[in-house]
Write a protein that binds this DNA or RNA. Sequence first.
DNA 1: TCCTAATCGAGACGGTACGTCCAGTCTTCAG
DNA 2: CTGAAGACTGGACGTACCGTCTCGATTAGGA
Lengths: 206, 206, 206, 206
Amino acid sequence: MTPSGTAPRQEGPARGRPRSEAVERAVIESVMGLLEDGVPLAELSIERIARTAGVGKATIYRRWSGKEDLFVDVVRAAGPPDPELPGTSVRDDLVVLLESLRPRGPAGRTSAILHNVHAQMKSSPHLWAAYHDTVVVPRRTLGLEVLRRGRENGELRADVDVELLHDIVVGPVLVRTVLCPDADLPDDLAARVVDTLLQGLRPVSG
Amino acid sequence: MTPSGTAPRQEGPARGRPRSEAVERAVIESVMGLLEDGVPLAELSIERIARTAGVGKATIYRRWSGKEDLFVDVVRAAGPPDPELPGTSVRDDLVVLLESLRPRGPAGRTSAILHNVHAQMKSSPHLWAAYHDTVVVPRRTLGLEVLRRGRENGELRADVDVELLHDIVVGPVLVRTVLCPDADLPDDLAARVVDTLLQGLRPVSG
Amino acid sequence: MTPSGTAPRQEGPARGRPRSEAVERAVIESVMGLLEDGVPLAELSIERIARTAGVGKATIYRRWSGKEDLFVDVVRAAGPPDPELPGTSVRDDLVVLLESLRPRGPAGRTSAILHNVHAQMKSSPHLWAAYHDTVVVPRRTLGLEVLRRGRENGELRADVDVELLHDIVVGPVLVRTVLCPDADLPDDLAARVVDTLLQGLRPVSG
Amino acid sequence: MTPSGTAPRQEGPARGRPRSEAVERAVIESVMGLLEDGVPLAELSIERIARTAGVGKATIYRRWSGKEDLFVDVVRAAGPPDPELPGTSVRDDLVVLLESLRPRGPAGRTSAILHNVHAQMKSSPHLWAAYHDTVVVPRRTLGLEVLRRGRENGELRADVDVELLHDIVVGPVLVRTVLCPDADLPDDLAARVVDTLLQGLRPVSG
DNA sequence: TCCTAATCGAGACGGTACGTCCAGTCTTCAG
DNA sequence: CTGAAGACTGGACGTACCGTCTCGATTAGGA
């Protein structure tokens, strides 16, 4: 894992002791460990991280410009657990896609970290940008591809607005994740959302 | 505005000088003013709030046990700007309801504060609970009523799951608000979401 | 005990509830009690005194302008335990006089308070003035009278400077009291000082 | 100036940035400066000292456990301006010794500080101990040596109690310094005390 | 017997300082 | 030049008093 590039290390003929990659790992591992232990993001002082990682504060500041900058790399390291889509139908792909968004879903550790961090990261534009680029955009891209494919092969109406439809599909899961974090999502939520949407909402009149 | 009840003031025959309601107002107004001025929540130290409000620190701690406890009351004071629904149809009601969720929507000041705070409050369970009770629950209740009414008068299919449908309706706006906070929402988003959903998604196959 | 007159109570036709003398007593008694308990003067906050005396803070400030002003009255109340002089000779009178200066001497309670306060009161000119007027001056006057009487009746040389001699007599006790507060003064110190002085210091050379 | 040893810095192989001696100096100089400017000891808050010295509060607390502990070092730094004795006779030595005790005497700056502090330091046992060790004991030792030398070379009677005599000599100056701080000491006080004592006090009867 | 007015205990008020903790930088020694 | 260690300035934390103020409840005259 290479730091996010905010460190001012100017390249040139390498002189002196090289930076230890073990330090990067130790620091990021420490942060992830603390987050897994349920330590709230706000209580993660640089001082505490340095102590936990057995690292000097200056060593952290040499690589990252601050807490925010460090967390960007933590998000990157936790990484996006891209789901594998079955590809059998739009419906099946969407169900798998939605399943992967659930915090306690199959992705395990990194998922937990990401959701823990997610909840609190809006305060930092840079941190949010990293999360956006690393997690949000890839998944949205994946979802849009599924829908576009469905539009092209006739599974969806030709005049459908895929961007809008995507948000309609993802929305309900996000609503329950963000607004009702305590209520466990029912296991079949994804399927029911997709089915409800695909079947249409108007009475089957005429 | 009465403090959230966390203050240890035990009730009984009133003894000593009573607490000034003007102080409550001044403090909460100061916090709201600072938030409106774009000061990030993390930079709102009690010290600064006290200075801004022209109030002693102890006076704040007498009422609220800490920053979090204070912000709970700020959220309560900013209050929910319940939208007025036209009632002409499920469609019209839902459009108005979704419009009211937009951060830069017509609700003005309190809306701005709530959305500013919202973005950063997940770090505190108590603060989030206050936001949930004050903002999330009333609006969800309102939305569910609209849908139930629609189901009863035949505008919606009789077997529709109103809770699920509600999240499907609200979801897209939340997606764009939470995940793409910079991209301004198009003015007709609400209408398009509702229309898309109501019109059904399946191809118009015979 | 009437407060020291710093209180702004303007005289006139007595209207309203008269001040309770019991309050004066309670406050001053509380201070003396705390001092006797070994509480250092610096830790005697007005707040604590009020709590101990079961009195409102404002009630104290109504009578005394501050801590210093209050302690002036405490000193006055502790009062000077004027020693009774035997009058049999200059020597005997001086010995009794010196004995009365010893902190753990026979004077008991008020003496303890005075010496406790004395040690720390130089920081306040007014407080010191009260101590000076109440304790220092009367004793000095007493001592000077003894010496003048001795000069007149031939016990002392006619050309002796009584003021200087007084300080020479009192000095050693003060030295040991002020500079070596821990070392207990030997019981016969007073006698030895007086005898040494009266007998002369020069070698008995012919 | 090394701090008084109350700082918990455990010795060992020097690790981390060493403490700056310049800080010690700056802090102590600031305290002395403020005292010289007539600021009363009671108004010397740590906060103000830190501001004046351009130093963080934590830096002060890293070295000294509190105000008292700091003042101990201030006293040590102000140091004892040991007088130079002429050595021509007991009388001349004692006169010089007494002169050096006068607050506005020839010792200048440090003397002023010491007397300023002296007046208020009895409230703190540790502070007083430092003053005692640094100022009182050396001078007493010096005085006792003078007297012992005088006893050995016949200037004083062989059976004289030098400790007692010392206090008799120093006492009058202390009396006027401590009990009548406002009255300037006459310039010839020292000489008059010594001469009076050495000449004997009893009438030259017989 | 009310009325007026100053008192009482209690405690809130705006402040200042306390002693602790952390941010972010700088400075040492060791590799 | 990098590493850990830790001192540095600065500033917020939450607490304790300061001296002032405002409550309801006494407690005296004078009407």
